[in-house]
Lab assay of single mutants.
Amino acid sequence: MTYRVRIENADGEVVTIEISADELREKGLTLEELLPPNARIVEVEEVEP
């Protein structure tokens, strides 16, 4: 499974990243732990691999 994640950074700019569930598991991280300081998740969407 892959996630498309929209993130708002500290400057108010919204960027989109895609990350797979396998990648998260391998790194032992959650989506929140990948965020840079002062950023927030705006939207998470599951996409087909």
Rank of each mutant, 00 (worst) to 15 (best):
T2P: 01
Y3N: 00
Y3Q: 01
Y3I: 06
R4D: 00
R4Y: 07
V5R: 00
R6I: 13
I7V: 09
I7N: 00
I7W: 15
I7R: 00
N9M: 15
N9W: 14
N9F: 15
A10T: 08
A10P: 10
G12H: 04
G12K: 04
G12Q: 03
E13L: 12
V14H: 09
V14A: 05
V14F: 13
V15A: 07
V15S: 12
V15E: 10
T16W: 13
I17Q: 02
I17G: 00
I17Y: 12
E18S: 08
E18V: 14
I19S: 00
I19R: 00
I19F: 09
S20E: 05
S20I: 04
A21E: 10
A21R: 08
D22I: 11
D22S: 13
E23H: 08
L24M: 12
L24G: 01
L24E: 00
R25A: 09
R25P: 01
E26Q: 13
E26H: 12
E26K: 11
E26A: 13
E26C: 12
E26R: 14
K27T: 12
G28A: 05
L29F: 08
L29D: 02
L29W: 08
T30R: 10
T30K: 10
L31D: 00
L31H: 00
L31T: 00
E32K: 10
E33G: 07
E33L: 06
L34S: 06
L34G: 03
L35I: 13
L35K: 02
P36K: 03
P36D: 05
P37C: 05
P37V: 07
N38T: 05
N38I: 02
N38L: 07
A39Y: 14
A39P: 02
A39S: 14
A39T: 14
R40C: 07
R40K: 13
R40H: 09
R40G: 02
R40F: 11
I41Q: 01
V42T: 04
V42E: 03
E43S: 15
E43C: 14
V44N: 01
V44D: 01
V44G: 01
V44Y: 06
V44A: 02
E45C: 12
E45V: 13
E45S: 09
E45H: 09
E46K: 11
E46S: 09
E46Q: 09
V47Y: 11
V47T: 05
V47K: 04
V47P: 03
V47S: 05
V47A: 04
E48F: 15
P49C: 12
P49Q: 13
P49L: 14
P49S: 14
P49K: 11
